[in-house]
């Protein structure tokens, strides 16, 4: 039980002059003439560039309009999107496996993971794609069976893997090396006490990873992975090295050499790449929101 304080003592405790009573300040804000000048100049230059670009014949906007939804271009855009999605999905899964292997108590698994990173991160993706294209030259047949015995099944490499598949494998294998490091940093960002608490409740290591550690690692993993997806979208323009020529860039190059007009088709390709990137950025925003549960005070 507390005794109610007499009003007189409360008044004595109140700070002198409450905010409502004090006179409002008259504030003269500083002017920033240079800032205003710089902004004005930039706006003028930007406006001039846009007006100029809209009229400049080399851009040939009417041809851009003609080809932006051309059947071949749309199909190529779909192919590029498929290359991106398939190779990223494989890279994320393979990267997670490599990251977990890297933390394994088994030295062989650790070394294999390290070697994979060294090899696939240490050579250019373009060179790797050329190698995948030559797979059929290096390994003529794919044999399934017991080693050094007559194989049960044997088929020719060229029939088993078409250029699209090889492009996906090539992009995915290279990307997995980068994703492994992103996944590893994500797993390391989760306090060890989380796994311990999960295991102490009776979860197996796998359950603790799936339910507790990985969902928390996602928060750290998503922004750099979003980066990688966008980077992958653009790296698909290298698959001509396989050679696979039905992606967005190769297809628009082919069309431009047919009509002897390269610039508008470069614009067509760029517009498609930008459109996909924008959609991916929106997707990333929502994913980040989903995995930010419980972070910070609300």
């Amino acid at each position: 039980m507390t005794t109610p304080t007499p009003p007189s003592s409360q008044e004595a405790l109140a700070p002198q002059g409450s905010p409502a009573e004090s006179e409002p300040r008259v504030i003269i804000k500083r002017k920033h003439p240079l800032r205003t000048l710089a902004a004005t100049l930039i706006v003028i230059f930007a406006a001039l560039f846009i007006i100029d670009a809209s009229q400049r014949p080399a851009y040939d906007w009417s041809t851009v309009g003609l080809y932006i939804f051309d059947r071949r271009v749309v199909q190529a855009a779909v192919n590029t999107l498929q290359l991106t999605i398939y190779s990223m999905v494989i890279a994320v899964i393979l990267g997670l496996i490599l990251a977990v292997m890297r933390q394994s108590p088994n030295p062989i698994l650790r070394s294999v993971s390290w070697f994979y990173l060294w090899l696939f991160r240490g050579t250019p993706v373009y060179v790797q794609l050329v190698f995948w294209g030559l797979l059929a030259v290096i390994y003529q047949t794919v044999d399934i069976g017991i080693p050094f015995m007559q194989p049960w099944v044997s088929f020719e490499t060229t029939l088993a893997f078409n250029a699209f598949t090889l492009a996906v494998i090539g992009l995915a294998m290279n990307e997995a090396a980068y994703m492994a490091e992103i996944m590893r940093s994500g797993l390391m960002s989760v306090d060890h006490g989380q796994e311990e608490a999960a295991v102490a409740l009776g979860m197996t290591w796998f359950q603790s990873m799936r339910r507790i550690v990985i969902p928390q690692a996602m928060r750290v993993v998503i922004p750099p992975t979003g980066n990688e997806v966008i980077s992958m979208l653009k790296t698909t323009s290298l698959v001509i090295a396989v050679p696979y020529s039905f992606d967005l860039y190769s297809r628009t190059r082919d069309i431009s050499s047919e009509i002897f007009n390269p610039i508008p088709l470069l614009l067509v390709a760029s517009i498609w790449y930008l459109a996909f990137t924008s959609v991916l950025m929106v997707g990333q925003h929502f994913l980040e929101k989903k995995y930010s549960r419980g972070a910070g005070k609300k």
């Binding site: 311990e196 102490a200 197996t204 359950q207 928390q216 549960r293 972070a295």
Partner: peptide, 26 residues
């Protein structure tokens, strides 16, 4: 087997110095 060890841990509750609550869950 780790699964058997995990099952036996269910009989034992543990409270940690640093709480170790799952921050992504209410």
């Amino acid at each position: 087997h780790p699964k058997v060890i995990a099952a036996k841990r269910r009989e034992i509750g543990m409270v940690f110095q640093r709480f170790n609550l799952f921050p992504h869950k209410t």
